[in-house]
Amino acid sequence: MTLKPVVNDPQGLAVTQGLHALGYPEVLGTRVGKHIQLTLTARDRQGAESRVEEMCRRLLCNGVIEDFHFQVAEVGA
């Protein structure tokens, strides 16, 4: 989950300043986001993807301010 590019991210600005203070002047910008790990059951990858996308739209992400990306990977039963 990341803030949309048009949304000001003061947290990211503070992190950039911190990195500059630590001697990393090459950092031009920082955007702070959120990482969520879900474990779920699904018949197949496509089924998992469509369910996760729906979860993102309905709860995990607020479409007014955030964008989301996700990856689905198989784990052992």
Binding site: L3, V7, N8, P10, Q11, A14, N62, V64, I65
Partner: peptide
């Protein structure tokens, strides 16, 4: 109310942090 979409927009972290 914003999350419930009864009002428009969203409330974000204060810019002063």
């Amino acid at each position: 109310l914003c999350e419930a979409q009864l009002l428009p927009g969203a409330l974000l972290r204060n810019s002063c942090l």
